[in-house]
Nucleic acid binder design. Structure first.
Lengths: 217, 217
DNA sequence: TGTACATCAGTGAACGCGCGTTCACTGATGTAC
DNA sequence: TGTACATCAGTGAACGCGCGTTCACTGATGTAC
């Protein structure tokens, strides 16, 4: 069994199990037995469970950042000095996210992982993601700033996080929500379908009227 | 030490620790030592860790459902046969949520717990919440249906969950986001301030134009 | 071409640890007669 | 009023279990001379 085989078998199995049940709830024994690999192989190849978790993320985030940077390069070349419209920026981000799983695993797994990164206690993971991938998000938010000059900086910051919450919450809890939707409305919802529904909602939300000023006291 | 004292000490300590680090990451030993209570007392009073988790939720959700039902009663009495506007419904829900922590602990803890209920693997918890508190949400969504007759049922379902995601994600990750906002924009953000910012965003999102129909294939 | 050594993926078994739960027990308070 | 018993909150110590990690080892392949 060549090295690459063992390593990718561990990663393939781990990402699915992590996405299904979280990090703490997935033991190395579960991963290695499902992957039909020796228990000690995880620590041999990755060093620790923490590093395995980070490796699982890199396998999604590395191609994503590459693609997203390239897509933003193209946009900036196309628009030159003109401001890139908000819809185009959001659309580009959505497309970059959607393209990644084509070469890896399912989008659902990717989204669940992102949701876990935020919601699970794993502080090391948030730090790792910020350090490794923070710059591409900084680039994106700067472009969003130019596209929404009427928004105060703080307001834009909060609205971007509101929308991040919408996307991560929806897509990471997708299975449960999908079951309900299917039972109640007889619709089978795909991730692409959800993104279609998300687009007008996110655009309207970003362009909502400014809130009333805080009440004086 | 009277019974109530031990029981509430366990609940008070558990809810804070659960909110900070999740369920699996919080051991009974941590809870009982922080609460200065015997380890076996949790199993004596609650039977198991699972039941303790459910008890923590009940202490928030019981007063919330009572208040929310009462608030909806008043609304329906006031509006009679007229449709209650969406803004009023959302406002009423927000007010009911905000009122609960006044008699219990912090709103932040309440929101973190709700976020965990969705994101952590604990299937038993989701089932418990659905069974115990599903009816008040059904009542609310029926009123929202009447207030947004132009939305297809499935679209309304998804948008309500989009907004649920916004609120839970924002308020449950509040500490981290607040730190960033404070550092970057010099604003100290209170929960009430966030709700003021959320209002126009949620209303606009719910009233966004319908998505383009799915592409034919 | 042959031999000695180094490298490296992978293994099987064990380590110590923290976990939720259980159990026999205590001691205070209430109840029956 | 006194005694025997029941109830109940709380306790201290132990149970068995699954966890991540470690370690000495194997066996195949590559490298030096």
């Amino acid at each position: 069994m060549a090295q690459t085989d063992t390593v990718t078998r561990i990663l393939d199995t781990a990402e699915v199990l992590f996405a299904e049940r979280g990090f703490a709830e997935t033991s190395l024994r579960t991963i290695t037995s499902k992957a039909r690999v020796n228990l000690a192989a995880v620590n041999y190849h990755f060093g620790s469970k923490k590093s395995l978790i980070q490796a699982v993320f890199s396998r999604y985030l590395d191609p994503f950042t590459t693609r997203f940077h390239r897509a933003l390069d193209e946009l900036q070349a196309r628009y030159g000095d003109e401001v890139i419209p908000l819809e185009v920026l959001l659309e580009t981000m959505a497309r970059s996210v959607l393209e990644v799983p084509a070469e890896r695993n399912s989008l659902k797994v990717f989204m669940r992982l992102l949701g876990l990164a935020y919601s699970q206690a794993q502080g090391h993971l948030r730090r790792y993601i910020q350090e490794e991938y923070g710059s591409v998000f900084a680039r994106f938010t700067e472009l969003v700033r130019q596209a929404t000059p009427e928004l105060p900086d703080a307001e834009r910051f909060w609205r971007l996080h509101f929308m991040l919450g919408t996307v991560i919450f929806t897509l990471s809890g997708l299975d449960a929500l999908r079951d309900i939707a299917e039972k109640d409305y007889g619709e089978h919802v795909t991730v692409r379908d959800l993104i279609r529904r998300l687009r007008p909602v996110v655009v309207s939300a970003m362009q909502a009227p400014l809130p009333a000023p805080p009440p004086r006291e």
